[in-house]
Nucleic acid binder design. Structure first.
Lengths: 238, 238
DNA sequence: GCAGTAGTTTGACCTGAATCAATGACGTGT
DNA sequence: ACACGTCATTGATTCAGGTCAAACTACTGC
């Protein structure tokens, strides 16, 4: 596993998409329509997706790898607004004032669907899956606001790790393993912190015996309870 | 205009909702269905909406007044995640980790629709209006992430004013008038700042001759161009 | 009109995270 | 196995914005 290229667990991204959507009662005509409008994208690590004009409102399915949605402020400041892992659907809708780009975190294979078409032309199960996903993204974005606006660096890191455990964690007996596909810079960009602060907070968590780190990307959670505690998701614990 | 109670420009909130949705081709049956599932809420200034269990996923139409969606961190920290003004539709979907409450900014009159029902049972124009609104909310939430994560206090205030001008500004020749329905505390909660910082930044904008303030809630924008400039929405201005 | 109060502004000071600056570790290519 | 470059960690210092404290102002009810 040295060159670490994609190993294609899903030979056909579209098939993977249909598997994940799980829409059993979708007529054949809709399936072929979907297939015709899904544009495959293959991005190298770090590469940005070229989004066409008509894809301003787009549903992007991640078949393999991981990607990030980045908002830009001025020339040098950037803020990661969403991470997107294998099997997830990222909703892009650019009414926004801020310019956004979609970039590959690792080499990845995507399918881009014009969301307008999907919603108006395929009003069956698929559209409802997209609506579901949109609601989920909205929730995540709002949770992100709370995190960015009101949490301390320590709480941000803990919340980040908890959410990564949820999404890509390998749960074992007693411990949970994480292999993060993003750099410290990317973690910082997503939490509104600098690399140094991310590093310092990881060290703090390590010193408290809550996590252990192996190399740059591997982390094991030793004490999930205390980690969650530090993420302060709950309020009014009365 | 002393007691400043609601003056009911829209006697029937449901009629107002239909007017705003503008779905001409909606069958009579759907209209009556919608009318049956819209629960009217009347909140006094500061009051929190009591959301029922089945309203975890809800579309809330604001017929009169203004409201805020607040996320809570621990017992005392709170973050405003969305403001919602007359004629707008707020989408709530609580998959979130963070607890949220909906509170009245001013006395207001709302209609709460269980969003699940709307989307599955009324797949016509109405549902697409809700989907539209969801996309918009998603955009706003992502812009908020960028603002919270990477903008300075000055930029946050400027961005806030620009967005308020968009939504409730009264555009005149040369100047734009704003009458903000929220307190300094609420502005701060929404921008991840304290009241003091909000106040100081308003003073700074006033000293630069960009805005003028009258009393607590009235602001006029004297120089919209310079205000937008300070909001730094654009990047890559090359 | 006046007093009371909540909301706002201003100032002095403090602190958490950013910035600046080295050093150190991983992983890649030769 | 080695050397290079990128990325990560650690330490010293700075600064934007928070906290604390005190005036001040605008709305409220009387």
């Amino acid at each position: 596993m040295k060159p670490k290229s994609l190993n294609h667990p899903h030979a056909d991204p579209f098939q993977h998409f249909m598997d994940v959507l799980r829409s059993p009662d979708l007529p054949e005509s809709s399936i072929s329509f979907l297939q015709s409008c899904g544009r495959p994208l293959h991005l190298a690590r770090g590469e940005a997706a070229e989004l066409r004009e008509q894809e301003q409102r787009t549903a992007i399915f991640v078949s393999e790898g991981a990607a990030k949605l980045v908002g830009h402020v001025g020339a040098d400041r950037e803020q990661i607004v969403a991470f997107c892992f294998e099997g997830e659907l990222l909703i892009l809708s650019v009414t926004s004032h801020t310019p956004y780009t979609l970039q590959a975190l690792t080499e990845c294979r995507l399918l881009a669907f014009p969301a307008g078409d999907l919603i108006t032309k395929v009003t069956e199960a698929t559209s409802s899956a997209i609506v579901e996903r949109t609601f989920l993204a909205l929730d995540q974005a709002r949770d992100a606001s709370v995190l960015l606006g009101r949490k301390t660096a320590q709480e941000k890191l803990a919340s980040f790790l908890v959410s990564m455990v949820d999404r890509i964690g390998v749960v074992g007996p007693k411990i949970i393993a994480l292999d993060l596909p993003m750099s410290r810079r990317e973690i910082g960009d997503c939490l509104g912190l600098t690399i140094e602060t991310v590093s310092r907070q990881l060290t703090a968590l390590r010193n408290h015996g809550i996590i252990k780190t192996y190399g740059r990307s591997k982390i094991t959670i030793l004490d999930m309870a205390r980690l969650s505690e530090r993420a302060v998701q709950a309020s009014c614990t009365t």
